[in-house]
Design a protein around this nucleic acid. Structure first.
Length: 605
DNA sequence: GCCGTTTTCGGCCCGACTGTTTTCAGTCG
C-alpha cells in the first residue's frame, strides 16, 4: 500500500501551492484559472476536517470541494508512491529555497524567482525566512482580544471615529487568530488613518493608504485597519469580517444574480438591470444579506461551509448563546482528594459564588481521580466518600437558600465580557443562582482503556467525565478502542472530555475514528464535551459540526482550576456556534429539572 | 483545473497598496 503514510494535510496544501506558483512562473496568463484551482484545492485541503490519507483510503478524495478528477489522480499517485511525476516536472527548474521564500510576506513567486536568480540571497531576507519558519504565527483568542482592545481604545480617543469594531477571525471567534482586523466608520479617513499609525506601542508601519493601513505591534502582531463612511459601513463590516472564502462564495453567488459585490456596496454587472449602474450602499450587514435574498448569517458561520445555500433556504440554525447556558460541567475545586493531576485552587464555596454571578442553576465538581499509584482501592473509596459527604452537605444548604425567592438582578450579566448581552429578564419569575452541585470526577482513561478507580467508586458519583492525559501516540484504532472502553465502564461514564487532547500552538490532537465514536455516543447515551479553555477549545469547531450533524449531544465545560476561569464559558459557546449548535444540541442549556430528568433516564439504563 | 438555480461548456471575487513600469505588475486579504 502506501509508502508515505505520514504526509499531513498541511504538507499536501503546501505542495499544491508550490505547484500553483510553478504554473504562475511558467505562464501566468495561460494558466490563470489553473493557478486559482490549485490554490483553492490547497486551501480546502488545509481546512479539511479529516486527514486526506484517510479519505484516500476510503476512496473519497473528491469529497473535498475543489478537488476534482485531475488533482485526485495526482494525490492518488502521491499516496501510492510518495511523489507525483507531473509535479516534479513542473517544479524541477526551480530550487527548493525559492518555494521557502514564498512564506515571507510580500514575496510571491516572481520576486522569489528573481531573488534566487540573482545568485546570493540577501542577508536580511535569510534572517526573515528563519524567523518566519521558527515562530508560531497565530495567537489564542483571549490574547488577540486583549491586544485588539488596546488599539480600539486608541482609535476611540478621536471624535472622527464614529464606530470602531474588531472584525476578521476575531469576530468570527476562530480558535486562533492570525492578524487583528479593525474597521472604523468615519467621514474623515485621513484623520483616522493618521491617528492609527501614531499608535504609541507600534513597532512598524507596514503600509498606509487612503482607506487602509497596517501596523505591527510588539510580539509581531499585525493590525489591519479599514475605514469607510457610515453610509456604506455595513458593506465594510461584511467584507472585513470574512472569511475570505465566505466572501468569494458570496460574490460568486451575487454574480449569478447579475450583481457585483465589494466592500463598498453592490452594483449591477453588464447584464444586471436590477439596480442600474449606481452603487447601492448598506448601513448594516442585515440589509446587505437581505438584499441578496439571504437570511442574516452570523459571523461564526461565515466559513464557506455551505452557509450561503442554507441561508438562501432560510434554514440557518438558531445558534446557542452564552445566556442559554445554565451550568458548567467541568470544574476542579480545591477539595483535596489526592488527585492524579493538578487540583483546583478555589474552594467549592467560592466556585458556587462565582456560579451565582454567572446566573447558573447547577455546577459539577470534576476533580481528577485520586492517584492510583499512591493509594489502594480502599483509600480511594474513602476519599470519594468524603467528597460525596461534602457535596451532599453543600446541596442541603443550597436547597434551603433556593426555597425563598431571591432578588432579581438586571445587571449581573456584566460579570462576563462586555460583548455579551445581559441575560436577566426582570419580568420572569425565577431564582437566581446555583441550586444544585453535582458530584463528579474527571477520570483518566489509562492507555489500555481501564479505569484507575474501583468501579464501586461510581456509587458515590452522580456522573463522570473521562479523558486522556497520557500515551497520546496510540494508533487511531487503539485510541478509539481506548475511549470506547472508558465510556463502557458504567452508565455514569457519561462525558468524553477534551476529546482530541489538543493544546493550541503546542500539541496536535490524537487520532480517533470520529464516526465510530459519534455512533457509539448516540446508541449508548454518551455526551461529548466542548472544553472552553482557550488553549484547548476541544472538541474543535469542525468536529462539533460533524457531531451536530450526527445528532450527538454536547456539553460545555470550562475545565476551571480557579473561579475566574469559569468566565471562559464564552469561548466554549463560540466553538459551539462555529459548529452550528442550537440549544437543543447542548445539554447545559437544560434547566436543572430537565437536566436531572435526562440524567436519571441515562444512568438508570 | 473545477464546477453546475446559466449543469458537460464556458465561466471563474474584487479592490488596496507599494514601488517604480508615468499606466502597471506583484502581492495581499
Amino acid at each position: 500500500m502506501s509508502v508515505h503514510k505520514e504526509i499531513t494535510n498541511l504538507e499536501i496544501a503546501e505542495l499544491l501551492r508550490d505547484v500553483a506558483a510553478s504554473y504562475q512562473l511558467q505562464d501566468e496568463k495561460k494558466n490563470k484559472f489553473k493557478i486559482i484551482a490549485y490554490e483553492r484545492a490547497a486551501d480546502a485541503i488545509e481546512h479539511a476536517s479529516s486527514e486526506l490519507k484517510d479519505l484516500w483510503d476510503e476512496g473519497k478524495l473528491k469529497d473535498i470541494p475543489s478537488v476534482g478528477e485531475a488533482i485526485a489522480e495526482h494525490l492518488d499517485e502521491l499516496f501510492k508512491t510518495g511523489h507525483v511525476k507531473h509535479f516534479e516536472n513542473l517544479m524541477k527548474d526551480y530550487p527548493k529555497i525559492m518555494f521557502r521564500l514564498l512564506k515571507i510576506q510580500g514575496i510571491g513567486p516572481k520576486t522569489a524567482l528573481k531573488l534566487v536568480s540573482e545568485g546570493s540571497i540577501p542577508k536580511e531576507i535569510k534572517q526573515e525566512l528563519k524567523e518566519v519558519e521558527e515562530k508560531p504565527t497565530r495567537h489564542l483568542l483571549p490574547y488577540a482580544c486583549e491586544r485588539s482592545f488596546e488599539v480600539i481604545d486608541w482609535l476611540r480617543k478621536i471624535k472622527e471615529a464614529k464606530r470602531v469594531d474588531p472584525l476578521g477571525s476575531l469576530r468570527r471567534k476562530a480558535s486562533t487568530i492570525g492578524d487583528i482586523d479593525i474597521a472604523v466608520a468615519t467621514d474623515n479617513s485621513e484623520t483616522v488613518i493618521n491617528h492609527f499609525v501614531k499608535f504609541p506601542k507600534l513597532t512598524k508601519i507596514l503600509e498606509k493608504g487612503d482607506k487602509t493601513a497596517s501596523i505591527i505591534l510588539p510580539g509581531d502582531i499585525q493590525v489591519d485597519l479599514m475605514v469607510q463612511p457610515s453610509e456604506s459601513y455595513g458593506s465594510l463590516l461584511q467584507h472585513f469580517t470574512g472569511s475570505k472564502h465566505h466572501n468569494i462564495a458570496l460574490r460568486e453567488y451575487a454574480l449569478k444574480k447579475g450583481l457585483s459585490l465589494s466592500e463598498y456596496g453592490i452594483k449591477a454587472t453588464g447584464s444586471g438591470q436590477r439596480i442600474g449602474n449606481r452603487l447601492k450602499t448598506f448601513k448594516t450587514e442585515e440589509e446587505l444579506y437581505k438584499f441578496l435574498g439571504l437570511e442574516y448569517i452570523e459571523p461564526e458561520l461565515r466559513e464557506d461551509a455551505g452557509e450561503i445555500e442554507v441561508a438562501r433556504d432560510n434554514k440557518l440554525p438558531k445558534l446557542v448563546g452564552l445566556s442559554d447556558i445554565k451550568g458548567d460541567f467541568h470544574i476542579h475545586s480545591s477539595f483535596d482528594i489526592e488527585t492524579s493531576h493538578d487540583l483546583g485552587i478555589s474552594s467549592m464555596e467560592e466556585i458556587i459564588n462565582q456560579g451565582n454571578k454567572l446566573n447558573y442553576e447547577y455546577l459539577a465538581f470534576t476533580e481528577h481521580n485520586p492517584s492510583k499509584s499512591k493509594h489502594n482501592e480502599e483509600e480511594i473509596l474513602d476519599l470519594l466518600k468524603r467528597k460525596r459527604e461534602k457535596v451532599d452537605q453543600l446541596n442541603l444548604e443550597l436547597q434551603k437558600n433556593s426555597a425563598r425567592p431571591q432578588r432579581l438582578s438586571a445587571s449581573d450579566g456584566g460579570q462576563v465580557k462586555s460583548s455579551v448581552k445581559t441575560m436577566s429578564n426582570q419580568f420572569t419569575q425565577r431564582y437566581n443562582g446555583v441550586r444544585k452541585v453535582f458530584n463528579s470526577l474527571e477520570i483518566d482513561i489509562l492507555p489500555d482503556g481501564s479505569c484507575p478507580i474501583p468501579l464501586k467508586g461510581f456509587d458515590y458519583l452522580d456522573f463522570v467525565l473521562v479523558s486522556i492525559h497520557s500515551s497520546f501516540n496510540l494508533s487511531k484504532d487503539q485510541m478509539t478502542q481506548r475511549v470506547l472502553s472508558a465510556l463502557s465502564w458504567s452508565p455514569k461514564a457519561l462525558i468524553f472530555a477534551h476529546p482530541t487532547t489538543r493544546k493550541l500552538n503546542e500539541r496536535e490532537g490524537v487520532e480517533l475514528d470520529w464516526p465510530k465514536i459519534f455512533d457509539f455516543c448516540i446508541k449508548n447515551n454518551k455526551w461529548i464535551e466542548i472544553n472552553a479553555d482557550p488553549m484547548r477549545l476541544d472538541l474543535p469547531d469542525f468536529l462539533v459540526r460533524e457531531a451536530v450533524k450526527a445528532g450527538v449531544k454536547l456539553t460545555l465545560g470550562t475545565d476551571s482550576h480557579n473561579k475566574e476561569m469559569m468566565n471562559n464559558m464564552i469561548y466554549g459557546v463560540s466553538v459551539a456556534r462555529r459548529g452550528w449548535c442550537e440549544k437543543k444540541n447542548v445539554v447545559n442549556c437544560l434547566s436543572l429539572n430537565d437536566f436531572e430528568k435526562l440524567l436519571k433516564g441515562v444512568i438508570n439504563k
